[in-house]
Amino acid sequence: MSKPEKSKAYWRENKKYLAILLSIWFVVSFGCGILFKDLLNRYSLGGFKLGFWFAQQGSIYVFVLLIFVYVLLMNRLDKKYGYNE
């Protein structure tokens, strides 16, 4: 595989990972905190309604978790295409 082809394939996979991870974050932050809050508010977590918890804390926790997942995925991708140092 030539260098330009390898570079295009690398960025194609990188953008795919970004789209998936940002979609997950959107569903958790916007979906659970706003769209599905009435359904989630039937349950509670730590004394707070679950919809409120996702809007205030859950989306932050998921975002931090997704950062670690992205680092892991990018380290694997770098090794796959020979960009690791």
Rank of each mutant, 00 (worst) to 15 (best):
E85V: 14
S23Q: 10
L73C: 07
F36T: 00
F52S: 15
M74T: 13
G33P: 05
L39E: 12
F52Y: 12
W11Y: 13
N75W: 11
F30N: 11
F26P: 00
N14W: 15
S23P: 12
S44L: 02
V28D: 06
E5V: 11
M74N: 13
N41L: 10
A55G: 12
A19F: 03
V69E: 02
F26I: 03
E85T: 14
Y81G: 03
V28C: 04
Y17P: 13
V27C: 03
L21A: 10
L39T: 12
G82H: 00
I60N: 01
D38F: 13
I20C: 01
I34K: 07
G33L: 01
E5F: 06
S29Y: 08
I60T: 01
I20Q: 02
M74F: 10
N84T: 10
W25C: 08
K6D: 10
V62Q: 06
L72G: 13
V69F: 06
L50M: 01
S29L: 01
K15A: 09
G33D: 06
V69A: 02
L50D: 00
Y10R: 00
Y17N: 11
G47V: 02
V27W: 05
V64S: 05
D38M: 07
M74E: 08
L40T: 07
E13W: 07
G47P: 13
L45S: 04
I67T: 00
V27I: 08
L35C: 12
V71F: 03
N75V: 13
K79T: 02
S44K: 00
F48S: 15
N41E: 01
E85C: 13
Y61G: 05
Y81R: 04
N14S: 15
V28Q: 08
F26W: 09
L50W: 07
E85Y: 15
W11K: 09
D78S: 08
F30S: 04
D78F: 12
F54G: 09
E85H: 14
K80R: 00
S23G: 13
D38W: 08
G58I: 01
A19W: 06
N14G: 11
F68K: 03
N41Y: 06
Y10P: 11
K15Q: 10
W53N: 07
G31Q: 09
L39F: 13
Q56G: 12
F63H: 13
N14M: 15
L45E: 03
C32K: 09
Y83M: 03
Q57A: 11
D78W: 11
W25N: 08
E85F: 14
F26D: 04
L77S: 02
D38H: 10
M1G: 11
L45R: 08
K6L: 06
L50R: 01
W25L: 04
L39K: 14
Y17E: 06
V27G: 05
E13P: 11
E13I: 10
L45G: 14
V28N: 08
G58C: 00
L50T: 05
R12T: 08
Q56R: 14
E13K: 06
L21F: 05
L45T: 09
F48M: 14
L22E: 13
L35I: 08
V69L: 02
K37F: 05
P4L: 02
R42S: 04
Y70H: 15
L18H: 15
